[in-house]
Write a protein that binds this DNA or RNA. Structure first.
Lengths: 201, 201
DNA sequence: ATACAAAGGTGAGTAAAACTTACTTACAAA
DNA sequence: TTTGTAAGTAAGTTTTACTCACCTTTGTAT
């Protein structure tokens, strides 16, 4: 993932790219500012010209990855008409993104949550927007009677988000492949149809 | 949460209690070994007599909290007969534990995931056992036809775990109350019955 | 009783890494 | 040319996790 297309002074871009590159093989804690500077080919001090601290760098890199992620999602759901199709598309696209971009997945699922500053960052604003998109579709689906009227939209949103994240958690941690198709259709099947066995229809 | 009942030299107990106490108001990163020692009334060096590093302390404290958590869960599901009742009990008990023990919740949901060493810790072994319990119940439920035979038990396990965790994530982060009853019955309703609206039965 | 090993505990010190700050260079506008 | 600003540097400082050599207490076998 290179980000040369994005705006900003060359030093800043080099730092973000270097950090992103290092995150492919190491976790946040074990990446030192010295190593980031060395990889970027700049001095350590420059990091603090563009980022308030190391965590701000993490958040800005996440923001950058998430922006392309979000754009992809919105493009895909725009093609779908029904609420169920849209939700299917979101589940699939989310899993697919985590499968294809492990840096995004690792930052989002493993790294950021541990510090409160994340929840004041621009990256978190993006993530909230993504979550909001899901909520909107659910509410829409309830209105159009595609979804049961007695379900709590907020709760369904959380179940879907939790299912997506937990489904690929282990694979992200241990760097294993994700079977996006199987996971995606499996989640949708469970959440849409339920798991109880009864002689219905 | 005091742990004086647990085995170990007084210094070790004091350190774990102090750390646990500090985790109620601060996150792992911002708790310094100096502060832990001061709160415990021991010297910094003693920490490293009983813990290989700061993270090991985190993992042992989690292990301790999780042990009581796990015991509570097992006691509750033992009273239930059907698979669905057992799963209901697990969802409720898990949410209830996170609601009542924020240190447990914060460590488990926010802190440990960021470092690989957790996945080699004893605490992770406990968590895997807990996840295994859920999986067993699901498999049982499929055998007894309580649950649909075409669902992937591993995936259902992850959906349930993800739903539980994501449902209380925001409240854990921002220290808000969790409506355990509403969340629990809501999750069960969604996962058991599905969210699609159709003229069935 | 005494020796003595082992466990519990101390405190000063070290190394590494995040962050600061005073400075220099490039470069565009007036 | 001067001047102002953004980009970048290099050499600190400080914080903090972790170490290590040393004391102190306790229990136990001779």
């Amino acid at each position: 993932m290179n980000t040369s297309a994005i705006k900003g002074p060359p030093g800043k871009i080099k730092i973000m790219d270097a950090f992103s590159f290092l995150m492919e093989t190491k976790d946040f804690q074990s990446i030192t500012t010295a190593k980031i500077a060395e990889t970027a080919g700049v001095t350590e001090g420059l990091i603090y010209k563009y980022f308030t601290d190391k965590k701000d760098l993490l958040h800005q890199v996440l923001n950058q990855h998430f922006t392309t992620f979000q754009a992809g999602i919105e493009a895909k759901i725009a093609q779908k008409n029904s609420c169920t199709e849209k939700l299917e598309a979101i589940v699939f696209a989310s899993l697919d993104s985590y499968a294809k971009n492990r840096v995004l997945a690792r930052i989002l699922l493993l790294e950021v949550r541990s510090s409160l500053s994340y929840f004041e960052s621009g990256a978190y604003v993006m993530v909230k927007k993504y979550a909001g998109t899901i909520l909107d579709i659910i509410c829409q689906g309830i209105k159009t009677k595609e979804l049961r009227p007695d379900i709590d939209p907020f709760l369904l949103q959380k179940v879907i988000l939790g299912a997506i994240e937990h489904t690929c958690l282990k694979q992200v941690i241990f760097d294993k492949k994700i079977d996006v198709n199987a996971a995606s259709s499996g989640i949708i099947n469970i959440v849409f149809n339920g798991v109880k066995h009864h002689g219905c229809h």
